[in-house]
Simulated scan of single mutants.
Amino acid sequence: MRAAHHPLLPFGAALLGVGFLSLMDAFMKEAALMIGAYSATVLRAGIGTALIAPVWLSRGPAMPTLAVWKLHLVRGVVSAFMALTFFYSITLLPLAEAIALSFIAPLVALYLARVLLGETISRHAIGASLLGFAGTLVIVGGRIGQGQFDEKAALGVASLFVSALLYAYNFIVIRRQAQVAGPLEIATFHSAIGGLVLLTLAPLLWQAPVREAFVPLTIAAVLTVCGSLSIAWAYARAEANVLVPTEYSGFVWAAIFGWLFFREGVSLPTLAGTALIVTGCWLAARAAPERSPAQA
């Protein structure tokens, strides 16, 4: 058996990919605290495009058809505001707490898939979503009980819920997009369109970046590419239902990086709420029909 086919390699690559993206969140939080979430998000998109576009173009690709262009545009618009609201939320909330709350996105996606794709929602999926909702209440309730749910925290949670809703819709678009375009093309248009869409708000939100911000921004862009490629490599070699649990390692990574970068602790309500949300996501994943990597 060749090493490339070892069953643990895809799992390890997916785990590493989630780690890369969690570390990217930490560097983006650092940059966003320096120059604002908007400027940091726009600059990351620009740097990411500069990194990935030459790789895609070097392969001599054919230009997308009109139908594929529409999918790229929809995903670019959705992802732009998904990223902006998420990066804004992590300037107001601890990293681990934000990641924990963002785990509700797959549960929201169940209902969007029902509305947009006509998929059936099973009893297991409904129970899973209730667990996820309960976990959210535990995390937010923990903040209220500790007297930490001030205006900033409320704004951070609201922003994160908007991001999670957009991320859930993103799942639906990705399913369609992955069937008609390759990973490099998707990554190129995802960064480029997202950055261009956000630039329309520059007259209102742009904050001139300080030189020091370009270090975490560049590292964040590189980590985004590394994380995306690691996860794509893993999903090309193992079934989605095997790799889904690696997504939840993001909470562990976020807790580690949140403490290392910002000395953020993790409260008991956050741990308990995360356990409920992850259990709900796990039940939903088990209840869902198996999908090929291209559809994940």
Score class of each variant (00 low, 15 high):
1 M>H: 15
5 H>K: 11
5 H>G: 05
5 H>F: 13
9 L>A: 07
10 P>S: 09
12 G>R: 05
21 L>G: 02
24 M>R: 14
25 D>A: 07
27 F>D: 01
34 M>T: 15
35 I>L: 14
39 S>C: 01
39 S>K: 07
40 A>T: 09
41 T>Q: 08
42 V>K: 09
47 I>D: 01
49 T>L: 13
49 T>Q: 14
55 V>G: 15
56 W>V: 11
57 L>S: 09
58 S>K: 12
64 P>E: 00
65 T>E: 12
67 A>T: 04
72 H>E: 04
73 L>N: 13
73 L>A: 13
77 V>F: 14
78 V>H: 09
79 S>I: 14
84 L>E: 06
85 T>S: 12
87 F>A: 00
87 F>Y: 11
88 Y>I: 00
89 S>Y: 01
89 S>R: 01
91 T>Q: 11
94 P>E: 07
97 E>V: 07
98 A>E: 09
98 A>M: 08
99 I>D: 04
100 A>N: 04
100 A>W: 01
104 I>V: 14
104 I>P: 05
105 A>R: 03
107 L>H: 11
113 A>L: 01
114 R>F: 12
115 V>R: 05
115 V>M: 10
118 G>H: 08
119 E>L: 08
123 R>Y: 10
127 G>N: 07
127 G>E: 07
131 L>A: 03
135 G>S: 00
136 T>I: 15
138 V>N: 03
142 G>L: 07
142 G>E: 09
143 R>E: 14
143 R>L: 15
144 I>K: 09
146 Q>G: 14
147 G>N: 07
148 Q>R: 15
148 Q>S: 13
149 F>Q: 02
151 E>A: 12
152 K>N: 15
152 K>D: 13
153 A>Q: 00
157 V>A: 11
157 V>M: 06
158 A>E: 08
160 L>P: 02
161 F>T: 13
164 A>D: 11
165 L>I: 12
173 V>T: 11
173 V>A: 06
176 R>N: 10
176 R>Y: 09
176 R>D: 08
178 A>E: 01
179 Q>N: 10
180 V>M: 06
183 P>E: 08
185 E>W: 08
185 E>I: 06
189 F>L: 09
193 I>E: 10
194 G>L: 07
195 G>N: 03
198 L>V: 02
198 L>K: 02
199 L>N: 05
201 L>M: 14
201 L>E: 10
202 A>M: 11
203 P>I: 11
204 L>C: 03
206 W>K: 05
209 P>M: 02
209 P>Y: 02
209 P>F: 06
209 P>A: 02
210 V>E: 12
211 R>I: 13
212 E>V: 06
213 A>C: 02
217 L>R: 01
217 L>V: 02
218 T>N: 01
219 I>C: 05
221 A>L: 02
222 V>S: 04
222 V>M: 12
225 V>C: 05
227 G>P: 05
227 G>H: 13
229 L>W: 13
233 W>V: 00
233 W>D: 03
236 A>Q: 12
237 R>V: 11
239 E>L: 13
240 A>W: 09
241 N>W: 15
242 V>H: 09
244 V>G: 07
245 P>L: 03
253 W>Q: 08
256 I>Y: 04
258 G>C: 06
262 F>G: 02
262 F>H: 12
266 V>C: 08
268 L>F: 10
270 T>K: 04
271 L>D: 00
272 A>P: 03
272 A>E: 02
272 A>H: 03
277 I>P: 03
277 I>A: 11
280 G>Y: 02
286 R>Q: 12
289 P>W: 10
295 Q>P: 00
296 A>T: 12
296 A>P: 07
